[in-house]
Nucleic acid binder design. Structure first.
Length: 398
DNA sequence: GACACGTGGCT
DNA sequence: TAGCCAAGTGT
């Protein structure tokens, strides 16, 4: 059977929902791991554990959690502590923004909430470092609010229970699953229920080898019923990187200055400088076909005297979403354009215009400015641009 | 929606 | 081994 199109899975039936709730709570009561933050009802301690556990494994967190709580046992103490002290306690855990935000939130709590965590999901969400997960976890575990706490484990568990064939990586699917799980939460026992779901994901419903034989939720799991527990969650195959070819122009004036181009704001590499380049469909052999493109998209009149010039260097650069090949040509401008002249295009920014001899650009150019620069290192360069200059200087020293 | 952010563990 | 992933958030 062809996999169905990605649609919102139908909700659990009421009997299945009740079976899930009871099975999970009983299982959790019996089999939960005795973790330090499960021995407390202090909202601050619970908050601290939730922040430390973000993208960080339980075993790593435990010693940091103990040490931090011993040194800074409550919110006022944390709020008064020097940030250096906080960071020293966090050192080695990673994601240091969490420590800054924890500290900032403590200060806000002292200033605006009398030193106590607000006992409400939406209030918590306003504090630094509280996203939907942490606000849900603290609201339900510390304050018994009936809200879901959906982390990576819960996403996986819910995806399997519902046999959800949508891409688990999409934020829209996270949101949809948060809503679904919100309908499962046991009102009187929200904190226990949420922790049970996470614990199930961490210890039974694992990524690579779900142990369905010991799963309390097996009777309601649609993936298991179909014998397809390994088919969920569905992860979109990372899109194949598209390949982009660029012809870049290595142009120097009589003083040896480089002609550089500054990327448009909002574009890839926004505001950074590089050799002026034009996109081309296929790897080029000679400069000839580039000349017309340069005139149209860069406003540059390339001399046709060297139109048979070959590629001087090839750069390869890989980004998250594309594979870039840059073919560098050594070329020169027609004489009229090599002489300095003032910027007159509105596309040229004032500071660029102060640079010696900026060039005007067509309105739809991928660049916001062109300028002659003696030393490219003095302007911000993308990694790709650094490769360009490395290649150019290597080629010219041959 | 795509990325950056840190570190450790696993296949 | 080169990714992938772990109790995510902010931009």
């Amino acid at each position: 059977m062809k996999p169905s199109a990605a649609i919102t899975p139908r909700p659990l039936t009421a009997p299945h929902r009740r079976s899930l709730q009871m099975g999970l709570l009983q299982w959790f009561a019996e089999f939960q791991r005795p973790l330090p933050w499960r021995q407390t009802t202090d909202p601050y301690a619970i908050w601290l554990s939730e922040v430390m556990l973000q993208q960080t494994q339980v075993a790593t967190v435990i010693p940091y959690y103990r040490r931090f709580l011993a040194a800074l046992p409550d919110i006022p103490t944390l709020a008064q502590a020097d940030i250096q002290t906080v960071l020293a306690l966090w050192a080695g855990l990673g994601y240091y923004r969490r420590a800054h935000q924890l500290h900032a939130a403590a200060k806000q709590i002292v200033a605006h909430h009398g030193g106590k965590l607000p006992a409400d999901f939406l209030q918590l969400l306003k504090l630094p470092g509280f996203g939907p997960y942490t606000a849900g976890a603290v609201a339900s575990i510390a304050f018994h609010q009936c809200v879901p706490a959906v982390d990576g484990n819960v996403l996986r568990v819910a995806s399997r229970i519902l046999a959800d064939d949508r891409d688990i990586r999409a934020a829209s699917v996270h949101k949809s699953l948060r809503t679904a799980v919100g309908g499962w939460v046991v009102k009187e026992n929200a904190g226990q229920f949420n922790q049970a779901l996470m614990e199930l994901g961490a210890t039974v419903c694992s990524v690579t080898s779900p142990r369905c034989d010991m799963c309390p939720v097996r009777p309601v799991c649609r993936a298991r019923a179909a014998g397809r527990q390994m088919d969920f969650p569905v992860r979109r195959r990372p899109k194949a990187k598209r390949t982009v070819h660029l012809a870049a122009l290595h142009i120097r004036d009589a003083q040896g200055k480089y002609l550089l181009a500054q990327r448009q704001n909002g574009a890839l590499w926004a505001g950074l400088w590089e050799l002026p380049a034009v996109p081309i469909a296929v790897p080029p052999h000679t400069l000839r076909p580039i000349i017309r493109l340069a005139r149209r998209t860069l406003g540059l009149e390339i001399s046709s005297a060297r139109s048979a010039a070959r590629v001087a260097a090839v750069i390869e650069h890989v980004l998250t979403h594309m594979h870039v090949y840059v073919y560098i040509f050594n070329c020169s401008l027609r004489t009229a354009q090599t002489s300095p002249h003032a910027a007159r295009s509105p596309a040229v920014r004032p500071h660029a215009a102060r640079l010696p001899a900026a060039h005007p650009l067509p309105p739809d150019s991928p660049y916001q400015a062109l300028a002659w620069l003696a030393d490219p290192a003095r302007v911000p360069l993308s990694t790709l641009a650094r490769k360009q200059f490395a290649a150019v200087s290597a080629a010219s020293s041959d």
